[in-house]
Design a protein around this nucleic acid. Structure first.
Lengths: 353, 353
DNA sequence: CTGTTAGCGCTTTCAA
DNA sequence: TTGAAAGCGCTAACAG
């Protein structure tokens, strides 16, 4: 009966079946598959023919167990649905593919508990390295969990653990964006921010503040709304800010979710950008350029962040040496129209007509 | 020397190390880990303590080899960077996670050769099922490759193989969108389309055509531009269409890339939407609502597509029975402003002021 | 309730 | 150039 099973269900052929079919030993088949050692051409042909004939597919799991190499890395991001992270993932995948690696992916939704769970699963599945967008809280757990498994963090600094980070000049980007608004003469700027425990949020706020301070200004507390998690939160935060007796002249949206919320609230309030209030955002996205008015933003090289992170990871995986401890990529101020540059241009045109 | 290695590098602890540390047998440890059989509480404690003490992590690869189960599925999409696909992936992942599965992901970029390669790698890595957005060409190769591995296709029909598909009512969606344009009185409609070999493209074009035919109209050939792969292609196609002696009154963008290209070309040509030309697109996206004017689109339930596909896959994985052979999800016409409804509204307001 | 033995599919000695 | 045997880390049988 036990043997029947093999015959009736025609179980998946193994290297052994190939060996029998070709009339050679297991090792010879193995050699042909990995073309590792010298094999006599005729023998090789015989083996190849047998492989074709019985439809043999190597079992990477068995191979992995033996050679202790899975050719797989793990990636944990906040949410693949956010275009910033999906671009990062694409960057990672492209370098992974070029090294014949696969990638396991998971969404933490900024929840540390999920991050921990996925990290553990990935470690158990013997990934050879992990790239993580750390949720707020401590990543100390990875010390025991991942041992000496190569790790690279992305977008933000982790807490309680030291490992390379690939990130962006958040403070400078926010400073540039705010300064540009200030150049327009807008001094009453609302700040729509997200989770303040995240280092990116802190850096961006610092840049915002620095630009104001430099001109002897300081933020009006009632215009600072942090801790928004969703587009809807940002929508409500913007609504509140617009209800202030002295309406802000401009809005600084700290990421693309905040931007969406702000834009919708403005739209809903019947306010026109930039005529009634100017808007700028941190993080560019595909459609920002097709918008009316076109959105002024600071762009982050998301795809490059992914590539750099993956390159760093692979360099750590290949030689156990350290490599860079942080890669800080530049942001770029992309001036379009929502900051008020449209209005300026129109005024200019009207004047000279 | 060989043994030294184990000691100096403190190799990863195995179940055997735990057994020795706890003074029990391998099997007992295994039982505790999987809490499969009854184990005396004291023994269990002893084992648990040993696991903690030496920092043991189960090796899922070894386990997989033994039980022939990897708790992993493979997903091959066109491009994770496209918000439509990233939403699908999120849907898939959410159900995978709920079943304790991980997902391996790869981007085919609509290139059959890449699709084949990734499919093979995933099969070798013993995924228990695959969800694929099939590239144009034939998926017949999967018959030999995947054997009886459960397969679900998504977004479009594959060729040369029969397996369940989760897709959307493309023809009806395109029909609705076009009819709405026609209701506005626009009869000269340009069609900016993508790869015509894809079944979605065919269905959408069919819907477009059907709506015209129903009113005794037919498309002007010089306004039909298919085969655009990128946003830039769509940009150029739209430019050409706008150069026609009789400019179209409206543009139908067949997916969100086409939409972007069209919008940019319009913007660049200094044409205002919908005053100068109306625009509608197939596939909604996050920002469509924050646009000025707000974009009229047919929305596809991308996240749900992913969920449905995953549910179907798991049902195939669990019982070998067939399950549904196709799930066709409804589209929704979301009327905003870019179709001309804004103009109408304004005209109405002006008239009654 | 616990232990022994065999073996998943593959590669790596080591020997022929 | 080829083969036999051992073992990667784990679990399924089968005893005890």
């Amino acid at each position: 009966m036990e043997n029947n099973k093999k015959d009736t269900f025609r179980s998946i052929p193994t290297i052994k079946d190939v060996a029998i079919a070709a009339g050679v030993s297991l090792k010879t088949v193995s050699r042909v598959i990995n073309n590792s050692d010298n094999v006599r051409p005729e023998t090789r042909e015989k083996v190849l023919a047998a492989i074709k004939a019985i439809g043999y597919q190597p079992n990477a799991i068995a191979r992995s167990l033996r050679v202790k190499k899975t050719y797989t890395i793990g990636v944990i991001i906040a949410d693949i649905t956010n275009s910033f992270y999906s671009a990062i993932v694409r960057g990672i995948e492209d370098v992974a593919v070029s090294k014949n690696y696969s990638v396991l992916i998971a969404n933490s939704d900024e929840v540390l508990k999920k991050e921990k769970l996925y990290a553990r699963v990935f470690v158990e599945k013997q990934v050879e390295g992990m790239i993580i967008v750390p949720a707020s809280g401590s990543q100390k757990y990875l010390e025991n969990l991942a041992g000496h498994l190569p790790l690279v963090f992305v977008d933000r600094y982790p807490e309680g653990i030291s490992a390379p980070v690939v990130k962006v000049e958040n403070e400078k980007g926010a400073y540039d964006l705010t300064s540009h608004l200030l150049d327009h003469g807008y001094e009453e700027i609302a700040f729509i921010g997200y989770e303040p425990a995240l280092t990116t949020a802190q850096e961006r706020f610092a840049g915002f503040q620095k630009a104001l301070q430099e001109r002897g200004l300081k933020p009006r507390p009632e215009l600072i709304k942090t801790g928004n998690k969703t587009v809807l939160d940002a929508y409500h935060a913007t609504e509140e800010v617009l209800k202030q007796p002295r309406r802000p002249q401009a809005i600084f949206a700290a990421n693309n979710f905040m931007m969406q919320g702000a834009l919708r609230a403005l739209n809903h309030a019947g306010l026109e950008v930039p005529r009634d209030v100017a808007v700028v955002g941190f993080d560019d996205f595909e459609m920002a350029d097709a918008f009316r008015p076109r959105l002024t933003v600071v762009s982050q090289p998301a795809y490059t962040i992914g590539r750099e992170a993956a390159c760093l990871l692979f360099s750590k995986m290949e030689n156990r040496s350290g490599g860079a401890e942080a890669v800080v990529l530049p942001t770029e101020l992309i001036i379009r129209e929502s900051c008020g540059c449209l209005r300026r241009k129109l005024e200019h045109e009207l004047r000279f007509r």
